[in-house]
Amino acid sequence: MSNTTTIPPRETKSAIVRKLLSRKSGADIAALQDVTGWQAHSVRAALSTLRKAGYTIDKTPPKSGGGPVAYRITGTPESA
């Protein structure tokens, strides 16, 4: 009888970024930085990489009271 336990694979930071960008409200750069621990330029590079992979990422302007720009995935490579 084996007492081994299987550990599920860890979710990658890129997968976390895709999940946050897939939400209805999307995510801003600061939120993506907090979750991944990346610097702003690394988050922007990840967005660029997703675009090159075929994802459509829309940029939502800040609300009337100011605030950050939100990004959201609106199309995936499979839907193209």
Rank of each mutant, 00 (worst) to 15 (best):
T5H: 09
P9N: 04
Y71G: 06
K63H: 09
S14R: 14
S64Y: 01
P9A: 05
T56P: 01
K63S: 12
Y55P: 05
K52F: 00
P62C: 09
T76K: 11
D28G: 07
Q39E: 13
A80M: 08
S14N: 14
T36Y: 06
T5N: 07
S42I: 01
I16D: 04
T60I: 15
G37F: 04
T36K: 08
V43M: 07
R51V: 07
V35A: 15
T74A: 07
A40E: 15
R10A: 13
A46W: 00
G65A: 11
R51K: 15
I7C: 06
V17I: 15
P77E: 04
D34Y: 00
I73N: 02
Q39N: 08
T12M: 06
S25I: 04
N3T: 13
D28P: 03
T5L: 12
S2M: 09
R44S: 08
R44P: 01
P62T: 06
V35E: 11
V17N: 01
P62A: 07
H41L: 08
L50W: 04
T56I: 11
L20Y: 13
A46M: 05
T49M: 14
V43F: 05
P77T: 05
W38S: 07
T6L: 14
K52C: 01
G66S: 07
S64Q: 09
T5Y: 06
R18F: 01
K59I: 12
T60A: 13
K24N: 10
P9T: 07
M1P: 02
T76H: 03
E78Q: 11
V17H: 03
R72N: 01
A30F: 08
P68H: 08
M1S: 08
G66N: 08
R18Q: 12
T5D: 07
L47N: 05
A15L: 10
T60N: 11
I29Y: 00
T76Y: 09
L21P: 01
A70L: 10
Q39K: 15
T36E: 09
S25E: 15
K63C: 00
P9Y: 00
T4D: 05
